[in-house]
Design a protein around this nucleic acid. Structure first.
Length: 531
RNA sequence: GCCUCCGUAGCUCAGUCGGAUAGAGCAGGGGACUUCUAAUCCCAAGGUCGCAGGUUCGAUUCCUGCCGGAGGCGCCA
């Protein structure tokens, strides 16, 4: 890696100046081309402790590197307040190309950061009593992208979703469904959504609404998720823990650790001992569990299967974090092994009306509606375009009317052009061979493509570490822009293009394909051969 | 009142492990199709990075306070 060579050179230069080099030397890509290919602030960062002026130290570093230049370094200079800027020979980018082609879509951008680490990612976890709505879609697309990123960085991932298939809300659901079946309105505190009318019509007369309705909801969820290519390894049933005795066993385990007490006939968890704001009730005065008891049992079960848990929850579950971490600590787990990611809520607008994707009201925009209107790729891309730390506003009318302008087509079009190029070249008797002179790739557009390509591995690393798949979305847009520019200005086959240049460009095209496909795979997008 | 997230161009959003002239798409303005798909490309325009302090050689980025928006603070889930 070129960064390794450069940081070694900087480290050696510091040593020569009698300064101990920091463990990690920061190298960055300057925002402006004239500042070179790579830049380091190491002189500014170390000058103070060394009792030197930053520019003076930078001068010493530059002099040392100029006297012993690594082969890729064309020139090195001091700039601004003390940056050390490297200008490299284009070969470093040609090496990026070779690397991408050699590694292919399976291995390019793959890292071993998470090698040997198993991670359980829980997401969606929607109540099995209504169709998934457009708010669930965010967590679904996000959770799946996180799983994909973790896999790319070497982790072994289990995708899991939790089913609240018992308790008060399931009874209300069954009652509401039964009422619809009789042609009546649901109970006032029941489920008002119109989907229940459809479901009731499908339900056989002799069916048990609780059982049949639950199955129907599950079928709805899995069909919706299937249509965007999301699959869970585990659909975990809350009810199964009643049958297995896992909840009672968990309460026993907590009691044995002296983490519970009884007050007002209720069983409490001493969660304040682990940073929670107040103690929490596990078993109510009437003997029923609160939601917390099965949830704790569920997480205990997950920990028995995986050392690291990631939960993706909506913003309305923010208050849940402290208490669940406290509960895990009470069970003797390291709470840091439970990571809870909060995705901010989605606001939807349709016909100038705002929809809130929460609550029991029937007014919903369903996940299926969005997919049906714009297709699975645009759905995924839209949800993965921005950070989950910000609230997302989706204007469905705008999304539909602009469906053809969706940025997903911009990036997919780049892939379609690649497929077309390869086909056209083949028709002209030009296929990519083993003999190639990459030194022919000197056009600024070609180099721009390779510069963009060179950032993919580090972008993946960072996106995975920061749980930020939107960084990949942005990368695909940037890369596609570079590729479209190349496509426009650099013909691969045709008059005036030598066979050798065609060959070199076919290699660049293949490297581009590898990069795009890796990016698409991380986002769960298809890679169309034509559009 | 307490806790979490957000506030960047007309709109939707990136960027921020402190760095050199803050970016993209859309909308609006001007250009480019006799060669691989114009779902493309190029140019111009658009900003007190919510406000005020603090730390720093340097703050949109870190800290504090305030203002504004969203969500959460149950023996609901």
């Amino acid at each position: 890696m070129v960064t390794g060579i450069l940081s070694q050179a900087l480290s050696d230069a510091l040593t020569a100046s009698g300064i101990e080099a920091p463990d990690e030397i920061h190298l960055e890509r300057p925002a402006r081309r004239e500042h070179g290919d790579w830049s380091s602030n190491v002189a500014m960062a170390t000058a103070k402790n060394a009792g030197k002026n930053p520019r003076e130290l930078a001068g010493e570093i530059v002099a040392h590197i100029e006297a012993n230049p690594p082969t890729v370094v064309k020139s090195v200079e001091i700039a601004g307040p003390g940056f050390v800027n490297f200008h490299l020979y284009d070969t470093w980018l040609h090496d990026v190309l070779t690397n991408a082609v050699t590694q292919g879509t399976d291995n390019f951008g793959r890292s071993e950061t998470g090698a040997g680490q198993a991670v359980n990612v829980e997401f969606v976890s929607a109540n099995p009593n209504k169709p998934l709505h457009a708010g669930h879609a965010r967590g679904a697309c996000y959770g799946d992208a996180i799983a994909r990123l973790l896999e790319r960085t070497g982790h072994t991932v289990t995708r899991e979703t939790y089913l609240n298939d018992r308790g008060v809300q399931m009874k209300l659901f069954a009652d509401s469904l039964a009422a619809r079946k009789r042609g009546e309105e649901p109970p006032a505190d029941g489920y008002q959504g119109e989907y229940l009318i459809e479901w009731a019509a499908e339900m056989p007369d002799d069916a048990d609404p609780a059982v049949w309705g639950y199955e129907r909801a599950l079928k709805s969820h899995s069909a919706t998720l299937e249509s965007v290519g999301i699959h869970f390894d585990v659909w975990f049933s809350e009810k199964s823990m009643i049958e297995s005795g896992a909840i009672d066993a968990t309460l026993t385990a907590l009691a044995e650790r002296d983490m519970t007490y009884t007050n007002d006939d209720a069983l409490w968890l001493k969660s304040t001992e682990f940073g929670d704001d107040k103690d929490r009730v596990l078993v109510k005065g009437d003997g029923d569990f609160t939601y917390l008891a099965p949830d704790i049992a569920y997480h205990r079960d997950k920990f028995s299967r995986s050392p690291k848990l990631i939960n993706v929850f909506g913003a309305d579950h923010h208050g849940y974090i402290k208490r669940m971490k406290a509960a895990m600590a009470a069970l003797g787990q390291d709470p840091d092994d439970l990571e809870i990611i909060i995705t901010q809520l989605v606001d939807l607008e349709r016909d100038g009306k705002e929809f809130r994707m929460s609550g029991r009201s029937g007014d919903m925009v369903y996940f299926d509606d969005v997919i049906a209107e714009v297709g699975p790729d645009a759905t995924r891309f839209t949800y993965l375009m921005q950070s989950v730390d910000s609230r997302q506003t989706i204007d469905l009318d705008l999304l539909i009317s602009k469906a053809m302008d969706n940025p997903v087509y911009y990036v997919q079009y780049a892939h379609a052009r690649i497929s077309n190029l390869v086909r056209k070249a083949g028709e002209a008797g030009q296929t990519r061979g083993d003999k190639v002179d990459l030194a022919l790739l000197t056009h600024e557009r070609e180099l721009d493509v390779l510069r963009a390509l060179s950032t993919l591995p580090e972008t993946i690393e960072r996106a995975a570490a920061e749980r930020a798949p939107h960084a990949i979305t942005n990368w695909t847009r940037e890369f596609a822009a570079a590729f479209h520019g190349f496509y426009h200005d650099c013909y691969v086959v045709g008059d005036g293009v030598s066979a050798e240049l065609t060959q070199a460009r076919l290699w660049l095209v293949e490297a581009s394909r590898v990069g795009l496909v890796v990016g698409f795979d991380l986002l769960g997008l298809s890679a169309p051969e034509s559009m």
